[in-house]
């Protein structure tokens, strides 16, 4: 009736972004693990990994970006959990606001915070010698895929944020997500893996996403990978959004 979804989401987004601004360590922390992985794999293990030409940092970066997103979205679960425990979520729900604006504000905050972490990681990669032939359009495409993937994983993070009973439980869901890139083409080409593992790696979303971004970075035609990646992201987004919304509605009664 009188709810204004856009105005409500904007007001709550301002609040969440203040939280991030006032604890910028969360953005840095999100970038620390991926940067550490980047350093270890490029300078320690990378020399022994055969990727078929090109520098290893160029090969590795797309997977590291996926790791960055996976570790960044855990903060959404964490912040939502604190809102729920502190009673402020209850206060918001008793106000005449659009129902899902509270969730949208958290999700969009995650997209912004994760984007900053991603920029940090790319900056480190550039210092380590990462180079790209991507044009403006390709960069936009990469940003689009990453944003879509962040949206999907963040909506997924809303579920543990609303249902967890402890802070640790709220963020624990992201561990398998951070691990998923290891069983994909992110670190090593999949053809070096034994049969069943290889099958899994080639049919999970991270491989499609990583391969699509890798082609875009290299300035090469992307082909089917892009569509597979987009299908995974969109599908995941829809499922996660519906799950989050239904969990949120159930917390009400």
């Amino acid at each position: 009736m009188s709810a204004r979804p856009l105005a409500d989401t904007t007001a709550l987004l301002g609040r969440s972004l203040r939280h991030v601004l006032r604890s910028p360590d969360t953005v840095v922390t999100t970038a620390v693990t991926p940067v550490a992985l980047l350093l270890v794999f490029v300078y320690v293990l990378g020399g022994a990994i055969e990727t078929g030409g090109g520098s290893y940092v160029d090969y590795l970066l797309p997977g590291i970006l996926v790791v960055t997103i996976a570790s960044g979205v855990a903060y959404t679960a964490y912040r939502l959990f604190l809102d729920l425990q502190g009673g402020i979520l209850e206060r918001f729900r008793s106000l005449p606001i659009a129902r899902t604006s509270v969730l949208w504000a958290h999700v969009l905050t995650s997209v912004v915070a994760t984007a900053v972490s991603l920029v940090l990681v790319v900056a480190v990669a550039l210092l380590m010698g990462f180079r790209s032939d991507a044009g403006l359009l390709a960069w936009l495409g990469i940003a689009g895929i990453l944003a879509l993937f962040t949206l999907a994983l963040t909506w997924l993070a809303v579920v543990p944020g609303l249902t967890a009973t402890t802070v640790d439980g709220a963020s624990a869901f992201s561990y398998p997500l951070v691990f998923l890139p290891f069983v994909s083409s992110a670190f090593v080409p999949t053809d070096s893996m034994p049969g069943p593992v290889r099958f899994f790696a080639e049919h999970q979303p991270v491989t499609a996403i990583v391969d699509a971004i890798r082609s875009l970075f290299a300035g090469q035609p992307v082909g089917a990978d892009l569509w597979v990646a987009l299908a995974w992201c969109t599908g995941l987004l829809v499922v996660a959004f519906l799950a989050a919304r239904s969990v949120y509605a159930r917390t009400a009664a």
């Binding site: 609040r15 939280h19 006032r22 604890s23 502190g86 209850e90 206060r91």
Partner: peptide, 16 residues
């Protein structure tokens, strides 16, 4: 929600 305002048992303020 327009007419009623609730103050719960525990202060629901944003600490940040």
């Amino acid at each position: 929600r327009e007419s009623l305002s609730l103050t719960g048992q525990f202060a629901a303020v944003d600490d940040v």
